[in-house]
Design a binder for these strands. Structure first.
Length: 125
DNA sequence: GTTCTTACA
DNA sequence: TGTAAGAA
């Protein structure tokens, strides 16, 4: 089997995590993981996939969550990560805007106060 | 020999 | 989840 670093067949993953290949296929069937496939339709798992599988095991074994629940939790987890990056983006742009505004204000030239004067207008009607 | 799909306890 | 059959 042509082995490369960071990529594993279902048998390798099963041995590493001490679980049955069938269980891994079941996780995929439930939509929790999406391992790549070779041209020969063989599943290829990445380190990221393995981390996800570890998370799935924690949720199911230690917390008693079923696969459907884990699916929802993982979706939420990823969504939170997305929102977090959006917040960071907004924070940086806002910070930049504030700095720009402060720079603009401090560069303004101070001006003498103007006076209000009374004027008379003559009209011939 | 390994993996895939499907099926069943 | 574990096991197994049959095909690839």
């Amino acid at each position: 089997m042509g082995r490369k670093k960071g990529f594993y067949t279902i048998g390798m993953v099963a041995e590493i995590l001490n679980i049955h290949p069938h269980t891994l296929r079941e996780y995929e069937r439930e939509g929790l993981i999406r391992p790549k496939r070779t041209a020969g339709n063989i599943r290829i798992y990445t380190d990221e996939d393995i981390e996800d599988i570890k998370f799935i095991r924690e949720m199911t074994q230690e917390l008693g969550v079923n696969l459907a629940g884990v699916d929802i939790i993982m979706r939420m987890k990823r969504q939170i990560e997305q929102l977090h990056s959006v917040i960071e983006s907004l924070e940086s742009t806002l910070r930049k805007k504030i700095e720009e505004e402060n720079a603009r204000r401090s560069s303004l030239v101070k001006k003498e106060p103007s006076h209000i004067v009374e004027i008379k207008i003559e009209r011939d009607d």
